[in-house]
Design a protein around this nucleic acid. Structure first.
Lengths: 207, 207
DNA sequence: GTACAATATGGACATTGTCAAGATAGAATG
DNA sequence: CATTCTATCTTGACAATGTCCATATTGTAC
């Protein structure tokens, strides 16, 4: 490769990484449907069947890409929680939710493959586990809300389903462009704030 | 065709419908990634390039399939609202939300193509319009909640984003299997009820 | 009945995923 | 250093697909 003069031309050096980068490029340019092993190989400057040695087949490449995405997601949520450690519990949750939606908006390619590609996680143990860790993090946070008395009478599972669905729905509808179509020109921040604040409207209602 | 003795063999009679049905079959059997014009044509008993005359290209076929799905969605939400006309406003919303999630669970093939196929709606005016009608319905319902004094101080847009995201998130995470992975073996009904009831937990909180 | 539009066929071509066989480089071992 | 082993990459092949084109058949309007 021209950009890697120290290495030999035959062995790429870090083809796996280069292919994952190419996948990101392709999706951002032409959508997830246009991802192909051959195009990724082309962009990485290797032959059409080189990717097979690293990822098996096309689905394997996408699985690796998705796993990368779940790693990112876990990271940003953990960071967000740490950054809001001094705030009230509910605002910590809000910070985590914002991080979730913002990751989707910043890495739409990863988010698409993670949740919109019909990937069968059970076929990829490593991906499955990474995703589970991500999901478990959210579940633990809502369980904390109950355990620490913020919602003493709530079912932790229901709370997890509620919070996760809300945040995930915001993310996918935003990435899809559907929210913009209905709400007009609003910033993502403004939409997140508004939606996450909505439950407090119920403070005036009778349960 | 053998199953349509009255019609000529050359002209199918209702190929468009048959192709849409085939798409549904294929997605349920092998996932949205396995949809192909040729396979759909095969199932409809026509030549490989017959579908082009009805839908242009593959994307056009999926666009028509998605439009069918948005039609269904509008239908079930309208029906749900009518069926809950006598109940309090909030329970009407809940009924609409349930209909939304249940449609996704019952027609996962349509739901996938509607929201998980990366279809560019702006390229298909008819699809675009049908989707807009569906989304506008939800927006109007949340606006009603504000106008009729259920949440007098709320921003209707924020409320729409909140409700739609919650319901849509439930739908996609359920269809994806992610919710089941975290919550274990719960029925869809139970999960919906729990998640939709969660906002009332905030009744005890200070806004 | 004739002309025209809609519908369907068959062939062709480029692209893709995948497989098998072989080539090249790096690392380990002597 | 020479040898062997393994990981990495290339080349060639094949079937399947999307799409275009020319052609054939049917339904319809006049």
């Amino acid at each position: 490769m021209a950009e890697n003069p120290g290495k030999s031309a035959y062995h790429h050096g870090d083809l796996a990484t280069a292919l994952l980068f190419a996948v990101d490029e392709i999706i951002r340019e032409k959508g997830v449907g246009s991802v192909s092993l051959r195009e990724a190989a082309r962009r990485a400057g290797v032959s059409h069947s080189a990717p097979a040695h690293h990822f098996g087949d096309k689905e394997g490449l996408l699985a690796a890409f998705a796993e990368q995405g779940f790693g990112h997601l876990s990271e940003v949520m953990t960071t967000a929680m740490a950054g809001a450690a001094d705030l009230p519990q509910l605002e910590q949750m809000s910070a985590i939710g914002k991080a979730y939606v913002k990751l989707a908006a910043e890495y739409p390619a990863h988010f698409d493959v993670m949740f919109r590609s019909g990937l069968d996680k059970s076929k990829y143990p490593s991906l499955h586990q990474t995703a589970e860790i991500t999901f478990a993090f959210l579940h633990e946070r809502t369980s904390d809300l109950v355990a620490q008395g913020v919602f003493p009478d709530a079912n932790p599972d229901d709370l997890a389903a509620f919070f996760w669905s809300l945040v995930h729905g915001l993310a996918v509808l935003w990435v899809d462009g559907s929210l913009q179509a209905v709400l007009g020109d609003r910033t993502l921040d403004s939409v997140i704030e508004g939606a996450l604040a909505a439950p407090s409207l119920f403070a005036g209602e009778q349960p």
